[in-house]
Amino acid sequence: MSSAPSISIAVETPLSDDMRQMVSELNAVLRSLTPEEANFSMSVEEMTGPETTLFVARIDGAAAACGALYRHEGGIAELKRFYSRPAFQGQGLARLILDRVVELAEGEGFRELVLETGHNYEAAKRLYVGAGFEQCGPVLDYPDSEYSIFYRKPLRVAA
């Protein structure tokens, strides 16, 4: 009888070999779906600052999914770099990470989470709509583009 896989989600550095590989895979997927001018990626180096917190989901120790909170001025935080490796998709890992990001943002007093995603990223749209995000116009300093969809979600500010 096999045991259930061990799932862990923790804050990690983006500079690990695991994360460098996963971000490389994510970038390749995004390049295959979206023109270069509509890709708003962050490098692992850009993710090392104090404004970014990266969560990594691991299954039996293997890096399986990631997602980050990026802090902006004015009570707004942004979702960045959400990705589940193909072998681990459909297990709810992105939602588990998203829940951790929302919890962190609310705990830090942010009033709103926003994001930009590709117009043809169906899994992303299902994730965000399922988590209570509403489609909106361009957010932050993103350009209005036929290749982008924007979402926002008001947060409960911690007392």
Rank of each mutant, 00 (worst) to 15 (best):
F40R: 01
V56F: 01
G130K: 05
A105V: 01
F55G: 06
E106N: 08
Q91G: 12
A62S: 10
I59F: 13
G137S: 09
I76Q: 10
S16V: 08
E122K: 06
A62P: 00
A159Q: 12
L30Y: 13
P14E: 02
V29G: 00
M1V: 14
Y70Q: 07
P154W: 02
E108Y: 06
T53W: 02
A63H: 08
T52A: 15
A105Q: 02
I149P: 00
A65N: 01
T48V: 10
A68Y: 00
V129Q: 11
A4K: 15
M1S: 11
G61I: 10
S145W: 05
E122Y: 11
A62E: 15
D17G: 03
Y121P: 00
G137N: 05
A124M: 04
V101L: 09
P14N: 04
N27W: 04
L79G: 03
L93H: 07
S8I: 10
G90N: 07
K153E: 01
L79V: 13
L96R: 15
R126F: 12
S145I: 09
T13W: 03
L155D: 10
A38L: 04
G137M: 10
G75T: 07
V157Q: 14
Y147P: 00
T53K: 05
E103Q: 14
A10C: 12
P14S: 14
E45K: 04
F110I: 05
E108N: 01
A77L: 02
H72Y: 05
T13L: 04
V114G: 00
G67T: 06
E73V: 14
R20M: 02
R100E: 15
A63S: 14
G109P: 10
L155A: 02
S43L: 03
G137P: 03
G109T: 06
R126E: 09
A62V: 13
R58E: 11
Y151K: 01
D60T: 06
L140V: 07
E51C: 03
A28I: 10
V29T: 07
V44S: 05
F133D: 02
E12W: 00
A28N: 12
V29S: 01
I97H: 08
Y128T: 08
Y147W: 15
A28E: 15
E78P: 03
E46P: 07
A64E: 11
